[in-house]
Amino acid sequence: MPINNLKKFLIDYFIINQCTIIENEKNKITVKLTQDLDEKLMNRPFYWHYMKKLNKIGEPKKLTINLGSEQNPQADGEWIHFGSPRLHQIFNHIEEQGKYVRFFEKIKSSNQTPLNPWLVLNLKINYLGENNKEEIVSLGLQLINGAIYSNFMEKIKQYSFDKNCHDYCYPITPLIKQESAVNRVYKFIHHYLKNQELEWARKSNDRLQKEMELLEYFFNEASSSNLSTIDQEKKLLKDRLEPKIKIDIINGGYFYVTNTTNKNILANA
């Protein structure tokens, strides 16, 4: 799911980060950055360092972005497209910014409301071998009964959450502690991976064997002085071709949801 509306995505990003949108045209936006974002994006640490030293308030820059489909030297502003370094700088910032969470569901009621604890983890499974592939998995683990659900982001995107707990709400303490919860997630994923089609791994392994054979053929009569080379070569081949899986955690944390929401999630499974 690539970002299909880059302009909206960027505007959202700047608004979330409290910047003012000065200009919003078809293929062009101009924003007044905040100091925070200027420091993160504009690569001028000396300016900010200097301002702080002098006890002065710095002036954050304006950033004009050109979103045309082709580079146009006449258009002012930076041309931003899917491969531009600026966008990736923004991506990195977003990823770093949105990594750890603790959310409480927003409610309107003024009755005493208990909130049920969930551990939500968005994972990126990296399949490494001859070629690399990634799979993204979103999991939710109910921390009272231990049930695990996948596709979790889809299930909760309709609700709204807040960083702070509403005055009339009280979160229920999880029965399952983090360590045990994490272990359950490991098990769940390992089970999932075990039942998977392993075509990619087999292909990579075949390739490894073939390369090893070729190596053996050319080295089989080689003198002993080549032994260290052949061992090193074997190791390099293995590093490159042996199928492996690495699991990154994109983001995640604790979610506290109302009984109704809890039921809806469980019913939707």
Binding site: I3, I16, E95, K99, Y100, F103, I136, M153, N251
Partner: peptide, 22 residues
């Protein structure tokens, strides 16, 4: 700790960069 918007955006970003086909 991230806000709800920040959390969603980070997820969407990683998804958009995902390496799919070999």
């Amino acid at each position: 700790l991230a806000s709800w918007d920040e959390f969603n955006m980070a997820y969407e970003t990683v998804k958009s960069k995902q390496i799919r086909d070999f």
